[in-house]
Write a protein that binds this DNA or RNA. Structure first.
Lengths: 238, 238
DNA sequence: ACTGATTTGTGCGTATGTATC
DNA sequence: TGATACATACGCACAAATCAG
């Protein structure tokens, strides 16, 4: 740090932290060292560090949580909930790069929740598609998508050929499916969920249960999505 | 317990627990004794207790959390989010008894969030109304409601006279206010929030930020509500 | 980050009553 | 009557998750 130039110390420090963030040395969501540690590293008083942090908070690059620490702000994605809810479209509009990975495709027997949502009999077969949705290479959500086997008997092949749920449903003539309802709750993540989402066990996840219907109002998909609550904000426009 | 009749032991035990729940001896949200304790009390094997609990979980009366315990399912209120979002109406429809208590009424200077949402200048005065919403005498949510002072100069008097936000807004000629947007996130509660909502620190809260507009599309209220995530489910019908 | 105590989850083996063929 | 299958109940041991310190 240069203690003579016309540039305030705190501003130089702020610029350096800002540089570390843009150079990805400090990644979104990372915890900064404590103010006391930073003060030692930069050989300045803690108040000087606090002035730098205050500046970057004001700029929206850092966030401070009393008793926990100072963090690089994580990607906050607005996830729009509406009739036409499409992950990829929503994310692209925010100039971010969405990716959906497939974890598994299985056939299971419908439990009460699934059967009730899809309006089929309990214990009939449904396909379960597990996906991970990522934005700029950071996991955002885990999705479980249930489809009635009776209606989509060759779903697995079509999905593998098409590569995405939207495209697959188009092939089945349901390109114009709509979101009927979304139920939203929050809870702590399981160990598996936390490890997939790369998040702490004590940070909550947002859970949405949704039903998608075709143009004849028939339910074609029941989906449960588990979002990292620190990285997403659900938005309802009414 | 009668060990001779044609009725299985586990079923008799399940019925007794069910009775305790309906007689309010076991209240919603309460933790049951551990399986081992119940086994001792009923003088049966732990497996027998487990069979009873499994039955009541199936019936939706209990929920089990590994490592934590078995609980009487708590009130799960569906909170509908739409153009006309009104707490009292929503709750009455579900045959429950809503109460709104006022914690405080203060005047503060608008920060960036508040000013941006209400489309007023930063640092102009706003009224802040803090409320607690209860259902059947259990706290459900803490609300912070911000109103521009310029538009509602005598808000405090009118609110005290009317007793509710809806009625107050009616007096101001805004009875037909509508919900424009709702943003939903989740996070752990602060100590204060946990104590007001009577919930554990490690259970998350749902946070909604909403903007209400009058018939001329002017924002008249910016509200932040913090719901106990274990007791509410937000529902979006599209 | 680790520890020990608590609590539920799971699997094994055994025994007995009850219904059916 | 006997054979078989199934539901019920008990005992023990360990795995996995939670929680407080």
């Amino acid at each position: 740090m240069d203690r003579v130039a016309g540039l305030a110390l705190w501003r130089q420090i702020a610029d350096q932290i800002k540089g570390d963030i843009s150079k990805d040395i400090l990644r979104p969501g990372c915890k900064l060292p404590t103010e006391i540690l930073l003060a030692q590293q930069f050989k300045v008083n803690r108040h000087t560090i606090r002035r730098s942090i205050a500046e970057l908070v004001e700029e929206g690059l850092l966030k401070v949580e009393q008793g926990r620490g100072t963090f690089v702000v994580d990607y906050l994605v607005d996830y729009q909930l509406g009739r036409r809810t499409r992950f990829t479209e929503t994310v692209l509009k925010q100039n971010k790069n969405p990716i959906a990975k497939t974890l598994s495709i299985t056939t299971i027997s419908a439990d009460r929740d699934i059967a009730g949502s899809l309006k089929i009999d309990e214990k009939t077969d449904v396909f379960c598609l597990e996906t991970i949705r990522e934005i700029d290479n950071r996991p955002l959500a885990i999705g479980s998508h249930y489809f009635p086997k009776q209606r989509f008997p060759d779903l697995i092949e079509v999905f593998k050929a098409e590569g995405s749920i939207s495209n697959m449903l188009s092939k089945f003539g349901c390109g114009d499916y709509e979101r009927q309802t979304t139920k939203i709750t929050a809870r702590p993540p399981t160990k598996r969920e936390a490890s997939i989402l790369l998040q702490a066990r004590n940070r909550p996840i947002l859970v949405t249960e949704s039903i998608n219907i075709d143009k004849d109002k028939q339910p074609i998909e029941y989906g449960v999505a588990r979002f990292s609550a620190d990285r997403v904000q659900l938005v309802v426009e009414t």
